[in-house]
Design a protein around this nucleic acid. Structure first.
Lengths: 217, 217, 217, 217
DNA sequence: AATGAATGAGAATTCATTCAT
DNA sequence: TATGAATGAATTCTCATTCAT
């Protein structure tokens, strides 16, 4: 193993790191253990990464890149807002299960000592989404699909909040349990039901203005 | 659990623990430092708690108890759903700022090695809320305030998801930054705006059925 | 061993540190080994000293304090310069053998990574000596024992240089060998000879003025 | 020792090693860093040197060779003792500044784990000097320039001690600070003053016999 | 019962040395 | 032959936990 590590080896090392960090959290994860599991020596890790934190950030980056790629896929093409929403919800259901560790990497930056990365990370991670969602809503307002008095940014925020929690609810131990408490122990096997209820909720949320008027009148 | 130490002493000890755990995370928090800051000896801590984890759980419990008390307040009395929602949103805005540490304690159970407590905790923490919210929605359906085809449990889930994220967005470093990315750097000082937009979103979400019909017709 | 360490224990710990640092140098000396040899745990060392460097500095301080005490003894009382010199030379011969490690601690600050302490240490260590020696020489000039055109500070410097090297020559491996190369393999057992030759050298050095004049005339 | 690499390359490699060892000390100096700075691979270093120590010894040897060459220069030609002394003092002042690293290499063998080389090194390094200085003094005794009762070897030793300390005082951080403490902060810029005072001291030291007699008579 | 000094296992990090290419 | 990537033993330092006083 005296030639530079191959792309696959790197991917494997990062995946190993992600698995450990996601499972144990930053502090509990052990660099020596990660190296061993990844089939390399600690020396290599420290040759390529300044310290544990730098390696963690690389793992996080890898996670986010993949998560972003999935999102980007769901956003492609010309679609009405609710069609998009459906695509995204289904994508979340799929990837949250496949990439449990990535979700947990994401969550791990919200707590403990990793909080110091908050400012830089928030911009990099949420920047694109915030922009795109707000634009969707503006477009939908133009075509009359969404109530005119909605603040696009805030509605984008609420929309993403719902998706975020859905993601956590599929990919994170605690939120999974919470999901069951709210919706029944079998909720994790009722994906279609979740999709339709969530679309119902969103459809309403986005369109009320007229309804409200009617209702109140 | 409280023998010789007074109630106030216990509260102080737990508050100190909460502050440290919230600030540093479970692993980084130092039991010796906590004891010193709390004005007691480590010996006492280990007399009443088996180990660091047991003490953490006690701190967590304290946090959740207070958070629950706040919620319970917001739920009291007879109100229409949106009035309740408004009360809760305002309560979240207030307590998330006052009790930043409690929010972070809550968040900390979603990550790292604390995940092992997920099942027990989820039931204790979310049980009441899930129940109450679902009942609210059923009631509102009866009085015609909410679309009939909504699944009460799922809508309760979405409702709580939005509140949860709002809470994180006020009380957790990372989600605060994310909030700014979505809604502008000054969003944390525009509480009324947040309330009104969120109510708009919820009002719609809960009521669409008719709207939808009207709109489509 | 649960009560605070006693004075004797501390002395023993420092002595152990001095022995190791003197033998191996700062970098090679191993904190865990020192702790073991001193009969304590590493934890204790790190409870009382911020880090290895702080412990080293404490050992150094101990060494210098003792070395200084010896010097202070030799300086006491009213004496003519050469009588003082003789006292000091004999003291150097005695202590350099007894306290080999202290000499080596002293030497160790002149090299390697410890050089960063140079400024602070030089003042603390040499300050008193420089002052006192210069004063001796001024006094001796007044009483006509030393040539008038001697700069007291410089002559004090040369005097101390000779004592310093004598100290090294008795207490440091390398300079001991050098001593033998210069003065014969048996020089270390000819203390009286060394004293008398050194006094000869000093006596001359301090008194030449008139001689020089006579000689040149 | 030099196969494929040119003389210049070797000089550069050794100079690089000297710079690092002098700056960091043996233990702190990093072989990989030295190799990189020297523009070669570690492999080459380990081809020509058994280990770090062997390389260090080569660097030390290089330093001493140059220091010796300087000394040899100062010793050439027919001169009276004090003329020689003046030449040597000036040479020390000059080379100690130009070759700070060599001085520090020299000092580094007096401390730490390098002490094990003491015996072999002392003979190689000091042998010539001791011999030559003693001869000078014997010659001077014959021509009546030095007191007859001086032991040539011991006086050579004292003479070299003074030069050694002067060298350290110009080339080593700690002794430089000590120099300032003794002779004032500006002493490093008063070379002529140092020369004349030192010559005064030496002139006296070497010549006292008559003076002493005169003085005492 | 309360204290807090002492313990020592455990984890991050470094770097001399090797050896496949 | 020269390279420098990879190795992994060694070292510093931390801190949960114990237990003599």
């Amino acid at each position: 193993m005296l030639k530079k590590l191959t792309q696959e080896q790197w991917t494997y090392i990062l995946e190993t790191g992600i698995r450990e960090f996601a499972a144990q959290g930053f502090d509990r994860a052990n660099i020596n253990v990660i190296a061993k599991k990844a089939g390399i020596s600690v020396g290599v890790l420290y040759k390529y990464f300044k310290d544990k934190e730098a390696f963690f950030l690389a793992c996080l980056n890898q996670s986010l890149t993949i998560l972003e790629a999935v999102l980007r896929d769901s956003l492609s093409g010309e679609h009405k807002l609710l069609e998009r929403a459906e695509k995204i919800i289904r994508a979340v259901q799929k990837t949250s299960r496949e990439h449990v560790d990535y979700i947990n990497m994401y969550l791990s930056i919200t707590t403990g000592s990793n909080r110091k990365f908050a400012p830089e990370l928030a911009k990099r991670i949420e920047g694109m989404t915030a922009e795109v969602y707000a634009q969707f809503i503006k477009d939908a307002q133009k075509s009359g699909d969404i109530r005119q008095d909605a603040d696009p940014k805030m509605f984008a925020f609420f929309f993403d909040n719902l998706l975020m929690m859905l993601q956590f609810s599929y990919g994170c131990d605690y939120f999974q349990e919470r999901f069951k408490v709210f919706a029944g122990d079998d909720i994790l096997s009722k994906d279609e039901f979740v999709v339709s209820e969530m679309l119902k909720f969103l459809e309403s949320a986005f369109t009320l203005e007229q309804a409200s008027i009617h209702h109140r009148s």
